[in-house]
Design a protein around this nucleic acid. Structure first.
Lengths: 196, 196
DNA sequence: TGGTAATTTGATTGTATAATCAAATTACTA
DNA sequence: TAGTAATTTGATTATACAATCAAATTACCA
């Protein structure tokens, strides 16, 4: 359907304006008026395509998460050993942050501010249904490495996956370009001495 | 001065009401009216004691940070070896999160939302003047351990300090009580195999 | 080409907000 | 005790916002 194409293009345009505005002014000051101005459309048009502000934010979150997941998993699959996969996972995660700065800021702004309809902030949700795909991918790599005897140290895969995710997130908040060492490289080196 | 005492007590009361309200409704929905209601005072009184909303948030942030720093450093000093100090640092950090849940939520809400007068979010500030006291404490422990040959592996203290801070922050977002392993214990074990 | 449905506008409505301030109350001092 | 300063109230002001909707415009099909 031609209409479906127009609708999809418009929705994506609005989502991108939402990302830009989030990066510029932050979640607290984001408004439909500002998003509309950024997209050069009227405010009513946003309401036509999204049921309300929360709906727009939700779709923006989904868009950002799937972008990030695609980028990283593309670079992990195809690697043969768990060691190479783990290395690719870390490198891709950190490079994604550097090359998709705007997306990352928008993601942080949403995760630390948006709330579900029952007022629970997203960051306080414990993934009951294991919906954190990146976490699952990471844990699978660790378990596979254990199975195949690539990683010979005794370690708890959940704990190590959490440590790795934390180490990656933390680097998001530091300006790595202003640092005199290669964080990605250091992190991989340290990790290997932990599990190999 | 008697007035100074009253003023200090009132300011602390308002700061505590601010923390409670942040934890309950989140930064986006926090308002002077709600904080005043929580403290059972009028809105005007907040304006009398703080120049504006940003000023109140700033003082609340300072209060939260110094509380956390005091708690952790109290448990680190007195330990004799760098190994013990590092262990105490990690244990205290994680226990603080579990026992001061409300403070931690309020801290997250502020750091990921408040902005300086030139609109820069706090979390995007690169600590130019090394004002992150916890980071400095952690890095000092690592360097001391290196100096005293307690930590014999080759490692970059900045990178490892960042990894540790990330691993601790990440655990803040997981409900550790719903996990079947001792994260604090696993983290320390993994770390020691990295640096010892 | 004409007509219907989809898309888009922008003005309007109701609500929440931060900050101000005159007036009331309380604390302190001489 | 009287008077002055500090503290506190709550109504008011100005501003920003999300959501709605009638009207205008555009796309599509027969």
């Amino acid at each position: 359907m031609a209409e479906s194409f127009i609708v999809e293009a418009r929705r994506e345009q609005i989502i991108n304006a939402c990302i830009d505005t989030l990066e510029e002014v932050g979640y607290v000051k984001v408004s439909l008026t500002k998003i509309a101005r950024k997209a050069k459309i009227s405010t009513g048009l946003i309401s036509y395509h999204f049921s309300d502000k929360a709906d727009l934010i939700n779709h923006t979150l989904i868009y950002l998460l799937s972008n990030q997941l695609d980028y990283i998993s593309e670079r992990v699959v195809g690697k043969n050993t768990a060691t190479e996969q783990l290395q690719a996972f870390i490198e891709a995660s950190i490079i994604y942050q550097e090359t998709h700065y705007k997306n990352n800021i928008a993601l942080i702004e949403i995760i630390f501010n948006a709330q579900t309809s029952d007022e629970t902030p997203y960051y306080r949700i414990t993934d009951e249904e294991e919906e954190d795909h990146l976490y699952m991918l990471l844990k699978d790599i660790l378990l596979e490495g254990k199975n195949k005897q690539e990683f010979t140290q005794v370690f708890n895969a959940d704990a190590v996956a959490t440590i790795i995710q934390g180490a990656i997130s933390e680097s998001m908040l530091k300006d790595l370009s202003k640092v005199d060492y290669n964080y990605s490289h250091e992190l991989i080196k340290m990790l290997m001495s932990m599990i190999k």
